[in-house]
Design a protein around this nucleic acid. Structure first.
Lengths: 112, 112
DNA sequence: ACTAGTATATAGTAACGCATAGTAGTATCG
DNA sequence: CGATACTACTATGCGTTACTATATACTAGT
């Protein structure tokens, strides 16, 4: 899927929050996870800016651990504020997606 | 619903395309339509930038008609390119929303 | 030594929605 | 006629976000 950049705005961060909420993970792994999910064009730099933002906003706890396969990894876990933010994200997503889908189905009904 | 600005990026334009596809309409009416749909904070300036973009990209045909309640209105209708763009929008939306919902339900299953 | 894979870091860019403000036309009322 | 209110479009600058490109660092295999 190409040129979905703009549509991902505000959504990717929520996805990252969700992924972190399942258990501690690090930037590179988050990127792989997103790619496996279907967002194949997401690159490390993008995820990095998101995790930096989460750090800055104090939504995650951080622990640095050595890796046998490269430089040390920065593991993230959601804290209470992060959990709250995640819930807010799903509320927003639910709101918007319901409205958009409403718009879509309404149209289908009128045209045919 | 507050602070959904970022999540609307790339989505609002699709909504406007969809609204125009139902029949010729003008900026002010599109704004009202979006507000009725639930996007209560959408302002005229936002819709204007979108319609200007649609014009610039030759996705709409334009007809100016006098109004009994103010200055003449610029009525927009989708042309072939606009229709195509609208279909692409719904494809993108379908792709992203399915992925996000997948992420959401997966989580629900793991937590409980 | 060189390459490839893993992993974090950062500067710069473009797009989008928004706030704000301005312009202009019509209707109404004193 | 003049003032006001409402409708409708135009214009500009801003903040946020994702992406690009690049740099750095560590390990393992050849």
């Amino acid at each position: 899927m190409k040129n979905i950049t703009e549509m991902l705005k505000g959504v990717l961060e929520g996805c990252v929050l969700e992924i972190i909420s399942r258990g501690e993970t690090y930037g590179y792994e988050i990127t792989q996870h997103l790619r496996n999910l279907g967002f194949t064009d997401v690159v490390e730099g993008t995820v990095y800016t998101i995790t930096m933002r989460l750090e800055k906003n104090n939504l995650v706890d951080i622990e640095k651990k050595p890796s046998t396969m490269g430089p040390p990894r920065k593991f993230y876990t959601l804290n209470a504020a992060g959990q709250e933010q995640l819930e807010i994200f799903w509320e927003k997503w639910g709101f918007i997606s319901s409205k958009i889908n409403e718009l879509n189905t309404k149209n289908k009904g009128e045209i045919q």
